[in-house]
């Protein structure tokens, strides 16, 4: 395993200690940090490894949230609902991917973007199942107080993050990851050497949806109420891309750090510039990308490490 991947696992292990240090607000931030990291790591599979710029993260986050939410509302336990949300998202994404991934570049980006709209309309119109525009109430799990709840959902999201990170690292070291890298670099050549590119791209798309869907399920249980405009928010698609670009495209450690840095920026800017926070955040992102086009992992110290490893 490479050094960067070990650091990533160590970093995630450190985050687990968060409940020792903070109150409900810190835990809430920690839960969102884990959720963002899951999204960034997942997007990195299809966007960073396979080179397909997907805007479908929000679509599968919402899908997972509604699969999880509907199952929980019907009395299914959390331990079953979350995995089903993940697996369901994987299957839906894999099947859609086989069709969508015939498009490349901007065309694929737009097609994946439209998935959000399609899913949102489906949920809006399936009123009997999902509550439609009225939203969906998810019953409270037997509550043992505000802090206990916060801690529980923090660890739940953290667990999904851990599974995501381990899966992404395993993919990056496997034949699957090697094939995705081939596709990113030269799809024509990949096909010509006997690589089933459609299958590999579909798996990449499915994996990028799987953990995001599980995170959506956890989110639904956590906030107890979801509605289509909340979970099918296009910002959930854009943010992971910004995180990956901030941290360094393709590197699991990079995109995770990117997710944390992004959340930090978002919080600080939101707190201090409440009137113009989107504008300030936008300027900061533009500046980061202008001066660090290859992300934080391209900073000098990191680069030296990278070289040493490759020799």
């Amino acid at each position: 395993m490479t050094r960067a991947n070990l650091i990533l696992l160590a970093l995630i292990a450190c985050i687990a200690a968060l409940p020792l240090f903070g109150g409900a607000y810190t835990l809430r931030l920690g839960t969102i940090a884990c959720m963002y990291a899951i999204m960034a790591l997942s997007w990195n599979v299809v966007g960073g490894f396979a080179g397909y710029p997907s805007f479908a993260t929000a679509a599968f986050f919402g899908l997972g949230a509604y699969i999880g939410g509907v199952l929980l509302a019907r009395g299914m336990p959390l331990a079953a609902a979350i995995p089903i949300a993940g697996v369901g998202s994987f299957l839906v994404a894999g099947l859609l991917g086989a069709a969508l991934l015939r498009l490349r570049g901007h065309y694929f980006a737009i097609a994946s973007l439209s998935l959000i709209e399609v899913f949102r309309e489906l949920v809006n119109n399936a009123t009997d199942l999902t509550g439609g525009g009225m939203g969906l109430n998810i019953p409270l799990a037997a509550s043992a107080g505000v802090m206990a709840d916060a801690t529980f959902f923090f660890y739940l999201m953290w667990g999904v993050l851990l599974v995501t990170a381990v899966a992404v690292i395993a993919v990056s070291m496997s034949k699957l990851g090697f094939g995705m890298s081939c596709i990113m670099q030269n799809e024509t050549a990949a096909n010509m050497v006997g690589l089933n590119t459609t299958l590999y791209k579909s798996i990449a798309f499915g994996l990028s949806a799987c953990f995001v869907g599980a995170a959506g399920g956890v989110y639904a249980a956590w906030v107890h109420y979801i509605d289509p405009s909340d979970v099918f928010d296009i910002l959930y698609s854009v943010k992971p891309i910004v995180m990956a670009l901030i941290g360094g495209l393709g590197s699991p450690l990079g995109v995770t750090i990117g997710a944390f840095v992004y959340l930090g920026l978002e919080e600080v800017v939101w707190r201090n510039y409440i009137q113009i926070h989107s504008g300030v955040l936008g300027v900061l992102i533009v500046l980061l990308l202008l001066f660090l086009p290859h992300g934080l992992t391209s900073l000098r110290g990191w680069r030296l490490w990278g070289r040493a490893k490759n020799v």
Binding site: K175, F178, G179, C182, A190, V193, G194, L195
Partner: peptide
């Protein structure tokens, strides 16, 4: 290696 890997 990619050629050897995916063709066999």
């Amino acid at each position: 290696a990619a050629a050897a890997l995916f063709s066999q």
